[in-house]
Design a protein around this nucleic acid. Structure first.
Lengths: 158, 158
DNA sequence: ATCAGTGCAAAACATTTGCAGCATG
DNA sequence: CATGCTGCAAATGTTTTGCACTGAT
């Protein structure tokens, strides 16, 4: 069940790297970083905006969410994942590859669930060495249906 | 390398399945199917429209491209891949899992290159069995830089 | 005080949908 | 000749951009 990691250290890490890169401390940026630091899996831009608006404290305009996301992605502090349905999702990248994971996507309820597998990582690295291509990152998405939607509910009415 | 497969059989296969599903033989549909049959890797909706307009014969409206894509995807005759950059790409699915492959994406020139790896497939299936999730499909994308863009050109100016 | 950071509204895309006319079975 | 197929144009949804204002250094 997506192990609720919560890594405030990442927020500090990200803030430092941003400062190193010459960015100032704006409120919208901090709010997005703090929110992302508290997640255990990827959020869409809309979900980020929504969560910040509900969170009590600091509503952040959609445009700012996208701008912060863009900065963080360029510094490789977050990674973008594309699981279909036309939207991008973003999640913290922890230094040293800790908590590196991939995603199960329920095509019925659109839920995104993280999973880790060391053997898969080893295999991917072996493949990366084998191809005539300089591999920097990899993304693995398993589509199907989650427990809630029933092990047989792959096909959907929507 | 992308081995220029060209499988006219797939066009027939797809046409049959569409007929079975009660579809007629419209010109736009045939044109899209024929084009996809001639590809060795995934095309975007825009590339499909463009290719058909240039191809000499049968321009197909964007809406029709999307409609045909949608029909083919629902019948699992093509698969949708998302490699970032905000667009979807589509490619023929060959019966029996033949020519099943994954993708290398050059983040410099945005080229998409197919690759196959049996060990990776075995590992993925092992993972699929292990998770509490009913896995129907999987998608693997390796990001980096292709030969043309230099084995060290992962970072990009654009 | 300066210049980066932010919000709002409009623009730019990819994709979807409504509807009128064309063509297949 | 009826119904499905197609094209056009408008709608939708996500992401980006322009510009004026706010706030950090």
């Amino acid at each position: 069940m997506s192990q609720e990691l919560k890594q405030p250290e990442w927020a500090d890490h990200a803030s430092e790297r941003l400062a190193d890169a010459g960015y100032r401390r704006g409120g919208a940026r901090s709010a997005v970083i703090d929110l992302l630091a508290r997640q255990d899996c990827a959020l869409s831009a809309f979900e980020i905006e929504e969560a910040l608006r509900a969170d009590g404290g600091r509503p952040v305009a959609r445009a700012s969410v996208y701008r912060v996301i863009d900065e963080l992605e360029q510094l490789k502090l977050i990674s973008r994942i594309e699981v279909g349905h036309g939207i991008s999702r973003y999640e913290a990248v922890h230094p040293g590859g800790h908590h590196h994971h991939h995603h199960l996507v329920c095509d019925a309820c659109e839920k995104v669930i993280p999973f880790e597998d060391d053997e898969l990582e080893r295999t991917i690295h072996r493949v990366a060495d084998r191809v005539a291509f300089d591999v920097a990152e990899h993304e693995i998405v398993l589509h199907g249906s989650c427990g809630d939607c029933g092990p047989r509910a792959s096909r959907r009415s929507a």
